[in-house]
Every structure is written in structure tokens, then in C-alpha cells.
Amino acid sequence: MTATATETAIETLTLPPDGPFPNNPALPVILHREAFTDPDPATIEATFAAHGWPPAWRWGVFDWHHFHASAHEALGCYKGSATLQLGGPNGPLVDVAAADTVVLPAGTAHRAVATRDGFRCVGAYPEGQEPDVQRGDGDAFEALEYRIHHVPLPAQDPVHGSAGSLTGHHPD
């Protein structure tokens, strides 16, 4: 279980609302580049679990825009690579590869635009949080926004175990 992300390997993206996708303008998406020296799924799962983000699944990312109004999400990439679109149809395209981890605050729309070489990742959510799946097609935008902004912050970063996992600040 070796997390090797460095301060220079961390990127952040703040995403404004995009139509029916609220995103989370208060919290950035965190990209941990090359977070693992061994991108084995069991290593990623053990690291996430040790930091309070129990792994929930191994698979890819849906190819349609969706978000979770009730949970933050970590995607630990362990095989292949993908181009993800974050934030909705007008959001940026982000390339990720095995060893990268993406931390998505509640409300952040995401989808896989393209996958290569059998792309797979571990999905995890902070202890006590259960993800719902929202497609941005409901009439309850304000209620979802309220839920998103009241999802508790996790105690630790899923990769480093440090405080500030969804603020972009990592005091390692």
C-alpha cells in the first residue's frame, strides 16, 4: 500500500453549474496524478479504506453525464486510460490513466468520453455516504443543490490520508 503522490502531482478544477448539472463550485475536483507506484486494485482499495473511503466497486465510468447528490466519490484508476468529461456537456475533458486518482465532490457531473486498453477504476465513497445517481433530468434542482452542499466533508484524503481532501489543500 504505497501512495506516492507529491504536491506537484496534484491538480484542481473548480467547475461552475452547467445547465441541469449543479457541480460543486465551493469544492474543486482533485486530480492526484501517478498517485500509486503499483496501480493494483487491491493496493488502491486498501489505501482508500485505510483513509476512511471504503471501496464500493471495480469497473469503468458511465458514458453518460451523471452526478451524486448524496456522496463524494474517489476514482482510483488501475488499468488503461480514459478521457473523462467533468462538469457536464460544457465541462473540460480530462485524461486519466492507471495510477491516477480523481476525487469528485458531491454534485460533480462526470462521464467517460473514451476509454483505452480496458480502462478500469476502483470507486469509493467516504464512510457513511451512499451514492445516488442523478442524470440532471429532474425538476428538483434546488433540492439537489441543498443536499449537495450539506454532504459532510470526509475526514481524510483517500490517497494521502491528510485533512483537506476536498478543499485542494494537502498539508503533507
Rank of each mutant, 00 (worst) to 15 (best):
H72M: 05
F48Q: 03
K79M: 02
D137E: 13
L144E: 05
A106C: 06
A82M: 08
H110V: 14
L75Q: 11
A112N: 09
G60H: 00
G161D: 04
A109G: 10
L84P: 12
W53F: 12
A26T: 15
V94N: 02
W57H: 08
G168Q: 01
W59P: 11
P20I: 02
A98V: 12
I44L: 00
L93V: 04
G123A: 10
E73A: 09
A50H: 06
F21M: 01
L15S: 07
L15G: 08
P16E: 02
A50M: 03
G80R: 05
T43Y: 03
H72D: 13
P105C: 06
A26V: 14
G138Q: 09
T4K: 15
V159T: 06
C77T: 14
P154W: 03
L104T: 12
G138R: 12
P171D: 12
P55K: 07
N23W: 04
A98K: 10
N24K: 11
T47L: 01
P158H: 01
C121E: 04
P92E: 08
R147D: 09
E45S: 11
D100I: 04
E11T: 11
A50C: 01
H51G: 02
L86T: 04
H110I: 14
D117Y: 05
D157E: 03
D38A: 12
A50T: 05
V61K: 04
D40I: 14
T6D: 03
V96K: 01
A5Q: 06
A35M: 10
D100K: 04
S70L: 13
A99R: 09
E73N: 04
G87T: 11
T83L: 02
I44E: 04
P17R: 02
P105V: 03
D132I: 00
G60N: 07
A56F: 05
L86D: 09
D137A: 04
W59I: 13
P55G: 07
P92A: 03
E45G: 10
L93P: 06
T37P: 00
A163S: 10
F48V: 14
L153S: 13
S70M: 12
E127W: 00
A26F: 11
E127L: 15
H66V: 11
E34Y: 12
T2A: 15
